[in-house]
Design a protein around this nucleic acid. Sequence first.
DNA 1: AAGCGCTTGTGAAGACACGCACAAATCGCG
DNA 2: CGCGATTTGTGCGTGTCTTCACAAGCGCTT
Lengths: 256, 256
Amino acid sequence: MSQHRPPGAPERPVAVPALPDLPEATVARLPEYLRALHNLAENGHETVSSEWLATAAGVNSAKLRKDLSHLGSYGTRGVGYDVALLIDQIEYVLGLTQRRSVALVGVGNLGHALAGYDGFATRGFRIAALFDADPVRVGEEINGLVVQHVDELSRVATEESIAIGVIATPAAAAQRVADRLVAGGVTSILNFAPCVLTVPDGVDVRKVDLAIELQILSFHEHRKASQTALPAAGEAALPPLPGNLAATNPQEAIGT
Amino acid sequence: MSQHRPPGAPERPVAVPALPDLPEATVARLPEYLRALHNLAENGHETVSSEWLATAAGVNSAKLRKDLSHLGSYGTRGVGYDVALLIDQIEYVLGLTQRRSVALVGVGNLGHALAGYDGFATRGFRIAALFDADPVRVGEEINGLVVQHVDELSRVATEESIAIGVIATPAAAAQRVADRLVAGGVTSILNFAPCVLTVPDGVDVRKVDLAIELQILSFHEHRKASQTALPAAGEAALPPLPGNLAATNPQEAIGT
DNA sequence: AAGCGCTTGTGAAGACACGCACAAATCGCG
DNA sequence: CGCGATTTGTGCGTGTCTTCACAAGCGCTT
Ligand SMILES: NC(=O)c1ccc[n+]([C@@H]2O[C@H](COP(=O)([O-])OP(=O)(O)OC[C@H]3O[C@@H](n4cnc5c(N)ncnc54)[C@H](O)[C@@H]3O)[C@@H](O)[C@H]2O)c1
Ligand SMILES: NC(=O)c1ccc[n+]([C@@H]2O[C@H](COP(=O)([O-])OP(=O)(O)OC[C@H]3O[C@@H](n4cnc5c(N)ncnc54)[C@H](O)[C@@H]3O)[C@@H](O)[C@H]2O)c1
C-alpha cells in the first residue's frame, strides 16, 4: 500500500513530525476510517468524498471532516480526499508504520481463537509470544508459536521489546498477569477478562467484555418493550423488513 | 441473591414501573457496577459505600452516585447502598429479570469460543441456537446445541422469539446475516465482524473489533514514544514496577 | 478568464458528560 | 436527647463532543 504520490500533496514524504494531540473520540474513530479506506483502495478508488467515507464508516460527515482536519490532513476542495495519502496519514498517526509485537496470555478457549486470528497480522500487529500457566498447554504449538510458561512472561517481554499485552485468562488471574506484563515493560494492555485492572500511570488498559455489551443491548430491548407496551397500547411494533439498502449506497463499494 | 428486604427500603417489592431514560454513558457503566456488586455479595458484604463500589468498578465516586441516582435508587445516607437491593434494581433496569435468548451465527474459530463461554449463562443470557453456512459444520453438536443451517435462521428466530443476535462470520457475510436476523425479528445485534452494518430504525447494533482496540492502543504507544523522545531527551521512562496495590484497596474485597 | 458546481474546513451553538464541593440525611454514641 | 461522624444526592462550573451551516477553495466548462 501507499505506493504513489498524490498530485497535490506536499513535498515531504509522509507527514507531520510532531503528533497533534487528538481528541480521544477522534482516535477511536480513525481505525474505522482506515478500514473503510483500505476497502476503497482495494476496489480501485483513488479519491473519496467525506460524505462517501462517512457513510462507509457509519458516521456523520461533518464529524469525519473535523476528525481528519485534526490531523492536519489536506483534502482537496471540490474533489475529496486522496485515498492512498489518507491511509498513510492515518497509519502514521496511529503508529502503524512499525509492526507492533503483541504478547497473548491465556491460551484457552478464547485465546486459541485469538492466536489463530489473521486480523492481527493484516492490521499492523504481530503475535510475538504466547503464554499460559497450565503445564499441559505449555509447549503446545499454535500457528507456528510455542506456548511458553507465564513465569517467562516478564523476561521474554523485556527481551523482545513487547509493548502490547492481551489478557485472555480467567478474571482471577488477570491482575497478576497484568503485573507481570507491566514488569516486562508492557505499556498497553487489552483485557478480555471481566475485571478491573490496576496499573501504574503511563500504562493504558482497554477492556472488551462480551457480557457488558449484551447487557447494554438488553437494556435497550427492555426499553423498547416497555415503550411499545405503554403509550397507547394500540400501535404494534413496526414490522421488521430487510432489504433496506439503496442501490446508490456507498456501502456497495465496500464488501465487493 | 436478593433475599432480604433492606431496612429503610420502600414498601414495593422491587422497582419503578416505568423506565427512566438513562444517559447512554450511564447505561454503559451499570453492567460494571453489577459485576462488582455480585462480587461483593459473594464475599458476604451487605452494604457498600459509593467510594468503595466506585473503586471496585474503576470510576469516580461522584459519577457512580449520579449514575445510581438516575435510576431512582435509594442508598442510605451515612451508611451506603444495600448490595442486594442495588443488584435487583440494576438487573431490573437492564432487563435482566428475564433470561434473554441469543442466536449465535458463525461457528468458526471465534464462534466456537463464544458458544463454549459460560459468561453468557452466568450473566443473564442463554444461547438458544447456533447457525452456520458451512454444510460440514451444520449438525455438529456444541455444548448441547446442534448447529443449524443459516437458511433456518429467520424461521427459528421468529419461532423462538429470539431478540438478540451475535454475528461471528467473516465480514463479507455479516450484512446478509444481519438482514436475516432482522427478518427473524431480532432487534439487537452484537457484531464481531469488522464491518459496518446497515439496519432499520429500531434495531440496535453494537460492535466489537479487536483490531480497532489494538490500533487505539498503538496510537497511545506512538504518542508515549514521541513524548519521551522529544522534550529534553534526558529523562528516561519511569521504571515499571508491579505490586502497586495498597493493602486497603477495595479491590481486595473482590477477587477473593 | 470568468462562472459554476462541488467539497472541504471551521466557527458557533447546543448537547452531553464529568467531577467538585456541599447541604441534607442518617446512624451511633455519650 | 443531642451531637458528631459519615455518606448520599445534586447544583453548578468546566470541558468535551456533536452537529449545523456556510465561507473559502478547487477544478471544469464555456
Ligand atoms: N470464551 C469466550 O468466548 C470469552 C468471551 C469473552 C470473554 N472471555 C473471557 O476471557 C477469559 C478466558 O476465557 P476462556 O473461555 O478462554 O477460558 P479458558 O478457561 O478456556 O482459558 C483460560 C486459560 O488461561 C490459562 N490461565 C489460567 N491462569 C493463568 C495465569 N495465571 N497465567 C496464564 N494463563 C493462565 C488457563 O490455563 C487457560 O488455558 C475469561 O476471563 C473469560 O471470562 C471469554
Ligand atoms: N478469531 C478471532 O479471534 C476473532 C477476533 C476478533 C474478530 N473476529 C472476527 O470474527 C469473525 C469470525 O472469525 P473466525 O476467526 O471465527 O472466522 P472463521 O472463518 O473461523 O469462522 C467463520 C464461520 O462463519 C461461517 N460462515 C461463513 N459465511 C456464513 C454465512 N453467510 N452464514 C453463516 N455462517 C457463515 C463459516 O462457515 C465459519 O464457520 C470474523 O469476521 C473475524 O474478523 C475473529
